[in-house]
Amino acid sequence: MSKKYLPLAATIAVFLAIFLIGGANYNNFLTTRVLGNILADNSFIIIAAIGATFVILSGGIDLSIGSMIGFVGVCMAVLDSMGWNPVATALVMLVFGILFGALQGYIIDFCNIQPFIVTLAGLFLLRGMCFMVTLDSVPIRHDWVADYASWKIGLPGKGVLRSSAIVMLVSLVVAIYIAHFTRFGSAVYAIGGDRESARLMGVNVRRTTVKIYALGGFYSALAGVVYALYTSSGYPLAGSTLELSAIAAVVLGGTLLTGGVGMVAGTLFGGMILGLISTLIIFNGSLNSAWILISSGVLLFAFIVMHRFLVSSFDLKGAK
């Protein structure tokens, strides 16, 4: 097996291990129902993380994810209260996500500044705009939302795939296609592997960077739409620090934060690991939510150290 697949294999192994540990300890854990719930409850994080995967594969980072989710949520809610159709609002918000991401990408490449700081400005800006839209929690009341929530596909056993999970899986498939079967996808890996070489190999770095962040913006906005529909409301503080969970999901999914190595499919498992941990802690009942943060931190640590040593064995040029 190529070393390339090692991080992904580790991710899946950890996922299965946690799932089995849960199954060994709790009666109703090892069921498709739990699986379906985890998929639905974490769908927005995973969707956002899919977008972040592209950004991180290219060697960048996007901190504006959480704020984007919050902003999309309040816009959905407020426009709903003004009588807009949720589908139309969602489309508008997706376009906004693309444009906002593209703008961030353009500034990053044009000004040649670390993505970290540019998307930090994006984080502030979008969160501030949340509060400009509304200061309160606003419900989404349109009938369509109830319809959407009722869509489901049965799974073997008693589980169901709910609408959020379906949207997430579809967007995952699209992302896998983009990452592994398009010219753009190869360019993303190339830029993350060695930006200067990629440029000399004919990759249009600026255009690709803009597209990467636009894609990230799209997925963040989609995550915001799914989150708003899932909770049937918009709240200006929604999604705070969610960028951290998304980044954690990407890393746990086996993507190197240094860029260039990783797989979109891994992000699904990375997000599921985070979901499993919180589900386990809820099942336990006596454990505090502090353990969610701490165990994610421990896993993150283990994966980052593992990646660190993998990178040195890859003999990557930029691996310092």
Binding site: R183, S186, G193, S197
Partner: peptide, 17 residues
């Protein structure tokens, strides 16, 4: 100027196919 972490195939065909 190649991308070390990418496969030979990808390196040979990047932006060419």
């Amino acid at each position: 100027n190649l991308i070390p972490a990418m496969s030979v195939t990808k390196n040979l065909t990047l932006e060419k196919i």
